[in-house]
């Protein structure tokens, strides 16, 4: 299998970045800014919302989906730009 070209390297790095920012980076922000520590609003016993997440979960999920879509695009690009996907290169190995 050929190495990643510059377009694929940039796109892959961008994907990894958006996915990690969405999950880990903004997750850390959510944690450090106090309750709720997760992506869901806090409610009291009556079911009323008493605190909402600092970062809208739609932003975080959007970053992750963006990263995955770009990765999918890398796959399509490779499919268009190269002859074949990596094979398992099975070869007979003689024990001589």
């Amino acid at each position: 299998m050929t190495q990643l070209d510059i377009v694929e390297k940039v796109a892959t790095a961008f994907s990894a970045g958006t996915i990690l920012v969405g999950i880990v980076g903004l997750g850390l922000v959510e944690t450090l800014t106090g309750k709720p520590f997760g992506a869901a609003p806090m409610t009291n016993d009556a079911g009323e919302v008493v605190a909402t997440p600092t970062v809208d979960p739609a932003i975080r999920t959007g970053l992750v989906i963006l990263g995955l879509v770009v990765l999918f695009g890398v796959g399509l690009y490779r499919m268009a730009a190269t002859d074949a996907a990596g094979t398992d290169t099975r070869r007979e190995v003689t024990a001589d």
């Binding site: 969405g22 997750g27 997760g38 992506a39 869901a40 975080r60 999920t61 989906i65």
Partner: peptide, 20 residues
């Protein structure tokens, strides 16, 4: 499958146990 799971992940959207 990834298309289905994207819709499930975003659509269920409660995230009561976190984004992950």
């Amino acid at each position: 499958g990834a298309f289905f799971m994207t819709l499930f992940w975003v659509g269920n959207a409660g995230f009561g146990h976190g984004l992950v």
